[in-house]
Write a protein that binds this DNA or RNA. Structure first.
Lengths: 358, 358
DNA sequence: ACCCCCTGTGAGTCCGGTCTCAATCCTAAC
DNA sequence: GTTAGGATTGAGACCGGACTCACAGGGGGT
């Protein structure tokens, strides 16, 4: 109760000034380390501040410097290790430069994202890092950009928005991994993603996610290269919760001409797909080959260990934060580095399909 | 370039007021929805605000309401799925009540934690949720508490700090799972944790983490109940990065009298332990039994699926945020619910030790 | 016709810092 | 002994809202 006395008011510069017997202006200067202050005054002020355990009110400071030293991060879902790791890269980098991070989840909902961006702007963050839910609906991001607030996109590009974007180009790696599957003898290859769409996949349809578009483009290229086409029916979007993923997986494996390989678009999907495969009593890779995006540690623990497309997620987080801070501080963007690229890591989950083995 | 004109200043109430031809006070009232405002004025102000796309400056608002609608969350590492999930619970709940979350990682470093708490206080967050790195060094938390800022601890208790704490009691579940291992015939059971200590484990030593203390207490109780003691050498703390965990695991399994079961303190450790076991060419559970804390999805995917202690992590995040917001809003703490408890989920990674099977 | 009270309204203060500006000091150079 | 010029210093404006206060109208009661 020593601190009581009916809700103690926070200590302000004025209090410190009074205690040090100087003007508020002088106290502020000594505390803020700017302007000219005599050694005598400085030490008295600092002593008083110490004594009163004064702490500046960052809100007030932000208000008239116009800098909040805070950046906003808007992602689909931190629970998803992909974003967890990226966020770690962002916060580590931000902290190094003295920035804090406000984190908002959108569940990949456009309205949530729009609102999140608005809230962050209202809080006067110095800049934003957004993993856009849609690469097509980008008006809210356009607004941010036009307002002059620094903005960096993560993971996905936004159509027609000339904003610094940290993402790996997916076309190449998707082409490469599809070719890998085709060469192993697979022809019926499925792709499963959570991406929400109004209708089932049609080749050439406009997709909300540049990542997914690119992956499909890569797959189609690999198919067409050997004179085949990727059956639209093998591309399954709208894979939502664990149950729906399970159903999709069963569907793919129980149809008249079952797929012989499944590509999972992210770690969360992978989990449910593999589980569903196991439930069906099928084994990887004898009965179905499997390939997934993102190289999480647990993929090395299954038997067989899973073949994955590894992305430098942490590093991308670092890069996004770095780029944003550079923008905020008005420095030139770094000489556009080599860009990030993904790698196919061949472990044990891809083999020849049964049929091909005779 | 339409937005140019040398860095456009943000629109303020004053601007809106001028456009609507009313006083700043009236505009503020109409916008803030307080006080008395005639219908005429209200509509003119709202129209002007819309026209200018006015957005209130939350910083300014916070400054004189004393509320920032922001809560600070301080965790060891969001990359760790345990915290990822808890954070999700927190942000979901916070959002529902109109709060935002500032997230800071500490890497379980006390100095980082102290600084994090300070920064958040400086930013005038309305309250804090902290997963304390130490249950013993709690001065900085004590300070927060005494300053009157709402504070809720997550996952770990803090000694002598009378603060609302959301954590599962570990003693019971640890006792239960140890007994399970003992009954299976194991006597040489190892416990591996990242907890940093100055010296190797000695029974009865004071540990920084209440979670770990409790778990060891439970283990020791189970041992003593059948007239045995838990060998201190089987408790391995300071398991840091993947390499060090690998070495520890090798050590435990290659010593003259190797352990027959290993308990991993969290998911990150589990990953490296299992990997090390596989590298040694040993199999679970034939050669070593394995048990871990936290029930992540991937634990069902390994062969055999892993036996785990499942904790309601997401729900605890929800509860922590709920409790904090209740404190912030000055409402009575919820009738202290049943508390959270962990469950032992027996899957396939525990079996009789080789010797006992003869 | 007079008074009271309630609704509307604008001027101005305050939150807690930063920063401008003019006044005061002090010291070295003339 | 002056004086120019830099170092110090305090008063006060300002950031952008929230909120207090005094005051103007207008309707109802008597």
């Amino acid at each position: 109760m020593s601190n009581n006395g009916s809700r103690r008011r926070e200590i302000t510069v004025a209090d410190v000034a009074k205690a040090a017997q100087v003007s508020k202006a002088q106290a502020a200067r000594a505390l803020g380390n700017y302007g000219a202050v005599s050694e005598d005054v400085r030490s008295r002020v600092l002593a008083a501040a110490e004594e009163l355990s004064y702490r500046p009110n960052e809100l007030a400071r932000s208000m008239n410097t116009g800098k909040s030293n805070t950046i906003g991060v808007v992602v689909g879902d931190i629970e998803n290790p992909h974003f967890g790791l990226a966020t770690r890269g962002i916060t580590d980098t931000a902290k190094k430069s003295g920035y804090n991070v406000i984190l908002i989840n959108t569940d990949e909902e456009l309205t949530a994202e729009t609102e999140a961006v608005q809230v962050l702007l209202d809080k006067r963050v110095d800049g934003l890092i957004v993993a856009p839910a849609s690469s097509v609906e980008t008006k809210h991001l356009q607004d941010v950009h036009e307002s002059g607030r620094p903005l960096v996109l993560l993971d996905r590009k936004a159509e027609g928005l000339d904003v610094e974007t940290i993402a790996v180009s997916m076309t190449g790696i998707s082409y490469e991994s599809t070719r890998y599957l085709l060469q192993a003898g697979h022809r019926r290859i499925a792709f499963v993603s959570t991406l929400k769409t109004g209708s089932p996949y049609r080749s050439g349809m406009v997709l909300d996610s540049s990542q997914i578009s690119e992956r499909l483009e890569g797959m189609e290229r690999a198919f067409s290269e050997i004179g085949l086409t990727l059956p639209e029916d093998h591309v399954r979007l709208n894979a939502g919760d664990a149950d729906s993923i399970r159903n999709i997986t069963r569907g793919l494996l129980l149809m008249p001409e079952p797929v012989t390989a499944i590509v999972a678009s992210d770690g969360l999907i992978a989990l449910s797909v593999v589980e569903a495969i196991q439930e069906l009593g099928l084994s990887i890779p004898e009965d179905v080959s499997f390939l997934m995006y993102d190289d999480f540690s647990w993929t090395r623990l299954t038997s067989p260990p899973l073949t994955v497309v590894s992305q430098p997620v942490y590093e991308m987080g670092v890069a996004a934060a770095g780029a944003l801070i550079r923008q905020i501080e008005g420095r030139k963007p770094a000489a556009n580095g080599p860009g990030f690229s993904a790698r196919l890591i061949r472990r044990g989950s891809v083999a020849m399909p049964r049929a091909a083995r005779v």
